[in-house]
Structure formats: structure tokens, C-alpha cells
Computed example of a mutant assay.
Amino acid sequence: MPRALITGVTGQDGMYLAEFLAAKGYEIFGLIHGQNNPRIPAVRRVAPSIHLLDGDLLDLRSLIRAMETSQPDEVYNLGAISFVGLSWRQAEITSEVTAMGVLRILEAIQVHTHNDMSRVRFYQASSSEMFGNVHEVPQRETTAFHPRSPYGVAKTFGHYMTVNYRESYGAHACSGILFNHESPRRGHEFVTRKVTRGAARVALGLQKRLTLGNLEARRDWGFAGDYVEAMWLILQEDQADDYVVATGETHSIRDLLDIAFSRVGIEDWTRYVVQDARLFRPADVNLLVGDASHARARLGWKPRVKFRDLIEMMVDDDLADLQRGA
């Protein structure tokens, strides 16, 4: 039975990955910070046999202990402070967790393996936010990075540190440069969930207005459940490498609003949406769209869930959740 250690297991990606690996017969260990995390019951529902270990990406010793306890064949580093907007207000802690956390877990693997790092396969959750002020469209593995947020800078550090350990120490260390990926498990602070839940609340008479920032920003949105399969496929390759994981399609916030409000029977969302300049990012990214041809050719991976189906899935889940609460 293969063994996997997942950091960030209580997040959207962590839960989908735990569920995916459990179905493949893995023994799964999930790193959590503190035993009172409110999302622990949700993790146990999707992966009942998971072993939860106390640890922190800020604490190298706890990561070494987690390695010794789990004895993993594969490590998936999904832990991060991942809300981009927050990173300007909390740049230091974002850097400590999202950037230095990668270094610490690579160091923990090095200590655990007694410098034979190829014994453990490592996946780093890199991000399309590293491309930032894009140098070419679409973005691929060779596109230069120009991050436009403290979060993007931190992810770029973690990405290059992963490459450095691969080249310097022979680590089987890979990165998936994932473009935006969403699901009903996405946190309410993210714009997709803010829109789908807002549309559901407006339709149910629980909310009159939805306040948003830049409606022109465009992103490449996919389904998180599809993307965790790519993470696993990346680590099954004998040669460690980095891969863009994306749909190759781009949509604006306006497109997102069109689909979400239409799903609840409202065709003209402009009566319910208010723009607030305070929600604009200090330095925004206007166009992100990925070229996943490398992943398609090497891994045989491609996204299954279309953008419209994804947003409608999220709206339906929000409606059901709010109706249960009512």
C-alpha cells in the first residue's frame, strides 16, 4: 500500500486529493495545525481512514516528525496562505508559510531520507499567479514569471526552491503550475464562491446586493477534482518535471456572473451587483490562460468539467446548502 503525506489537507485541494488517493488504496496522512480545525470532520467524511498529524509549515521539527511517522512514498505540499487579496495585508506571514514552508518541507525530506531525496517523491503546488504581468499568452512552462502580489512572489520562491532541490540534491521534486481551480468546497472568500453563493442568496431573498471589485479580470478556471488527478499523475512519472495544469480557456468575472445568475433564473444581474474600488487589487493580473499541452502529451491528462458546468455545480450546491440552513 503506497503512503502519502498531504499538507493543507483541510483545504479544497487537500480534500479532493485525499478522496482521490483513498480510492486508489493509499494510506493517507494529513498534516493539520491544531486539533480544533473546523474542517476536520469534512476531511474524515471524504477519507475516513486518514491519519491526521499535528504539524506546521512554520516549524521544521514538526515536519521532520511527520515524515518519521508517515514514512511517505509521496509528499504533496498543498499548504499555503492562498487568498491572494489577503497577501498584501499579511505579506510577512504569507511569505513564511507559502514560500519558506516549501523550503522547510524539502529540508524535512532531506533529513528523513538521510540525503537520499530520490526515495520520496515531492509535489509542490505552484500557481499561475507566478506569471502575473504575463509575458506571453497563453502561459506555458517556459513563460517568464512576473508575479504581481506577495502571494505570487511567495509561490515563485517555492517553485524555484523545488527546482533547486531537484537539480542540486537529486530530489524527485515536481511542480504543478495550476491555474485557477474551483469547486463547491472552495472557501467563501474566493470570487467564484462569492458569486455563486451571492447569486443563490439573492434568489432566495437572503441578500439584496453583491459587492465585487474588478469585473474585467479574466482567468482560466477549471474543476479542482480534475486537477488533483493531474497532481497524482505528475508524481507517477519516472522523470521529475514541472507542468502547467489548465483548461486553455479564459473567462471574465462578467461571464461568471452571467452563468451564476442565469442558473437561479435571473438574466440581468446588473441590478444586484455593485462594484467597489476598495476591492480592486493594488496590482491586478488581467489575463491568465494556460497551455497544458505538456501535461496532455506526457501525462495523458485533460480537464473533464467545463466552465459552465462547474459554475452551475457550485450554484446548485450553494442553493442546497442555504435551503438546508433555512
Score class of each variant (00 low, 15 high):
V9E: 02
T10L: 10
T10S: 12
M15Y: 07
I32F: 01
Q35F: 06
Q35I: 09
N36D: 15
N37L: 06
I40H: 03
A42F: 12
V46H: 09
I50Q: 05
M67K: 01
P72M: 06
N77T: 00
A91Q: 10
E96Y: 07
M100I: 01
V102C: 08
A108H: 02
A108P: 01
H112P: 01
T113R: 05
D116T: 08
Q124D: 10
S127T: 10
G132M: 05
N133I: 05
P138V: 00
E141S: 03
F145I: 03
S149A: 01
V153F: 04
N164H: 13
H188R: 12
E189S: 08
F190M: 06
V191Q: 07
V191S: 04
G198Q: 08
V202W: 04
G205S: 11
K208F: 12
V228Q: 02
A230T: 11
A230N: 13
Q236S: 14
V245S: 12
T250I: 12
T250Q: 11
L257K: 12
F261H: 04
R263I: 00
V264F: 04
I266F: 01
E267R: 14
T270K: 12
V274K: 10
A277W: 06
L279D: 02
R281H: 15
D291T: 01
A295K: 04
R304V: 13
V305Q: 09
E312G: 06
M313V: 02
L319H: 09
G325K: 12
